[in-house]
Design a protein around this nucleic acid. Structure first.
Lengths: 205, 205
DNA sequence: TAGATTGTTAATCGATTAACAATC
DNA sequence: TAGATTGTTAATCGATTAACAATC
């Protein structure tokens, strides 16, 4: 693997390649080419080759890429060749939907704790495990060594919860609250806000 | 407004500015500067000024931007100064969460139809309105003139539903299914896949 | 072998930043 | 006025594409 710094924009495309390759594997395909993969994900073949080649020589001239091998390599690069425990904060509708979501299985993640600050919800069960008191969040996350959290609390609460998560050692936050979070540079944040995504498209309508 | 083509990457930042400005307005602030706005959203002041200046001269030297005025202008540019009707396809957990989501109000969107292909779900109510039969999707969307859809169906069904949506005149799809969609260039797609977002961060852990 | 496809280089294209005159 | 901040230009930086030798 290349020791130089890989641009974040390339890292951002790798999960998309991974998802498409997994789909091909599920369909029983054994090999693919940058051309074919590119058609699936809507990215040029040249760019796919360039992206992949940042990490090693995983293809073969003439025949392309072994899907199984490239899958392994991408999982290793993205560190999803093992399962990450994830904490979820906010047991509202969105939190419930994420707890029940089947799409984390086989993609490297598992929700193992759910918190809410509403005392009436604490102790209730979602899909088998109990909602815990948000007051215990820092302590529980720190002692369990969890590095990834998903934030599905209302916007006004998001920053203060994020501060606690950072304090507890969380290094990656998937933020569903519609607000930009202020965190140290060592902590990564990804944003999911359906209104933002929709507004990105209405310009073109 | 500038007639030249605005890069998509700039369009993508405008909703983030809009969200931050709305928050400032809600907090009673009247004016802001590119510096201050930049600190809120994590973008350089120079870039914010450059982005905004693509569309006109909305600021004043010495005092910055009127928040109310810039909000109006951004809403106008993004065409969210009126409410768009949205169709939702897939009444699973995620679909339910989106129907109940409060975050579309005041941001330009309203879900007005929900479809599912499960005949047992058809006719059931979510938050006051009935789940409709997915067989009627094309017809209903076409006759209502809806241009925006949210897709919360399982991955294997997503492409064929997307084809029907395109056929029915939909021009913007917010896709929650974990698969890249193939659509004509005139149709915009935005992707929300929590596993993809998480995998984008694990590289750095 | 002949055909296909990689990995990589160089050229092009596009985005970001720094700096500052204009001006509120 | 003096200070602040915009809009814009030029310089820098970074990403994408095209092309092709290497080679399976």
């Amino acid at each position: 693997m290349n020791a130089e710094k890989i641009p974040d924009i390339i890292i951002g495309r790798l999960p998309v390649y991974l998802r498409a390759l997994q789909r091909m594997a599920d369909n029983g395909l054994k090999t693919t080419s940058s051309q074919e993969l590119g058609e699936h994900v809507g990215i040029s073949a040249a760019q796919i080759r360039k992206d992949i080649s940042q990490f090693g020589e995983f293809g073969k001239q003439g025949t392309g890429y072994s899907i199984a091998y490239l899958l392994d390599k991408l999982k290793e690069i993205l560190k999803v060749n093992h399962i990450w425990d994830v904490a979820l904060i906010g047991a509202g509708d969105m939190g419930h939907a994420l707890v029940r979501y089947q799409g984390f299985t086989n993609r490297g993640f598992k929700i193992v704790m759910v918190f809410d600050n509403n005392k009436e919800k604490v102790g209730q069960k979602i899909d088998g495990f109990s909602i815990e008191d948000a007051d215990k969040l820092a302590e529980r996350i720190k002692s369990s060594g969890i590095k990834i959290a998903m934030l599905t609390v209302p916007a006004p609460a998001a920053q203060s919860v994020a501060d606690k998560l950072v304090q507890a050692g969380v290094k990656a936050i998937l933020n569903y609250a519609p607000i930009s979070l202020n965190v140290p540079k060592s902590v990564k944040v990804q944003y999911i806000d359906p209104s933002i995504h929709l507004q990105r498209m209405t310009y073109y309508l």
